[in-house]
Computed example of a mutant assay.
Amino acid sequence: MSNAVLITREPVINKQHKITANRLIVHAASVSQAVEALDSLAEVWPSTHPVFISLYKLVPTPDLLNWIAPANAMVEIPTQSIAHPLTLTLIPQLLAANISLNLTWYQHDTVLPPNVQWRFLIVDAKRQHLPADPPGLSIAWGLTDVPDFRNAIAEGYDGASGWFFLRGVKTDGKLAPSHAQIVRLMNLVRRNAEVREIETVLKQDVALSYKLLRYINSAGFGLMCEIQSFRHAVTILGYEKLNKWLSVLLVSASRDPSAPALMQTAIARGRFMEKIGAAFFDKGELDNLFITGAFSLLHLLLGASLQSALEEMHLPTPIADALITGDGVYAPFLKLAKALESFDDKQLAQLAGELHISPDQVNRAHLEALSFADSLQFG
């Protein structure tokens, strides 16, 4: 896989703790290889939010002009290469092609080419404070945790890029009543309880009913008709699919300020596992793969330990094994999903190789999962 192209990512978070852009890090041996890989993913391209394209360690060259860039794509120009002749040649050509530019690793003393409008600036907040009068919207990078993010916003940053929101969350509590209600519904659905019995529980919380129907009818689900009621959902989908959508409801039940980004990440993990696992498992198990990925951040979303949250749900053994002990048949797929949230393409390549999954399959499932998670409205 030495010449393979692999794509990892990190989210861009706004002041309201929501993911408003996705930063794709393209690991390739050359710009032309990166372009070929990006072009091959046009049909699964995530279109809901802007997409930052980082070529990682490569100098952006005019080869990038061969890419048929989607309208929401933004190309990152690293400060270290901004004076390179090939980059200086490329910048006006990208602007002429209506491709937005972001400046990465901007510093106080960066000498910028004239007449260039930068949309976003990514600043290594570990090494310096926010520069005065930045020539674009400022994005902090390298934050450690959620308190770090709050400090960066207070300092004047417009947002941040990275996975800081996965750290610094207390998980000592137990399930809140609203969460427990959804778990109760999941247990009823899993044992095929009477529709009337499930409807009684749903009617106790109209907001839950509304959110459940909203998710089921979302564009990502691809239904041919609109689901009007829970009874209608049972008729069209069956209990197994409803169990999956109740898991989405549980993931989205947190009211923590950091929850929207966590929710989107959890759903992206689940959808990736569902997509990439389709060649390995029977169709009936794919919903379990989705639930495994979605529940991998449940302890952060619910503020309860994963063990206590899962004990209430009586999940199938492969799901519990993957989440609690990191073992079992689903565990390698969860590790692969987590490896997408990294700059480490070597680890990603190794995990994919152990499963005999090609880089193209990984990239395609990755972007499909991102598109799906972006299509749901969290918060």
Rank of each mutant, 00 (worst) to 15 (best):
S81D: 12
A294P: 08
F333L: 15
V111S: 11
S358M: 05
A279C: 07
N151K: 13
V12E: 04
R364S: 09
M263K: 07
R184E: 14
R269M: 05
I13L: 12
R196V: 13
A339G: 08
F372M: 12
L242M: 06
R190A: 15
G220Y: 02
A180H: 14
W245T: 03
E155G: 09
W67I: 08
I25R: 06
E354G: 08
E368K: 05
T48H: 11
P62H: 13
L249V: 04
L213T: 03
A69R: 03
H129I: 08
N243K: 09
D327E: 15
A34F: 07
T317M: 14
G326L: 13
S375G: 04
V195S: 11
I319N: 01
L348W: 03
S2E: 13
H179G: 10
W105D: 15
Y239E: 09
D287F: 03
A29L: 13
A322Q: 05
L58I: 07
V195R: 12
V206I: 13
N22L: 14
N72Q: 14
S296D: 07
V234Q: 09
A154M: 13
A28C: 10
I276P: 00
G173D: 04
S40I: 13
A42C: 05
F221Y: 15
F290I: 04
Q204K: 12
M263R: 05
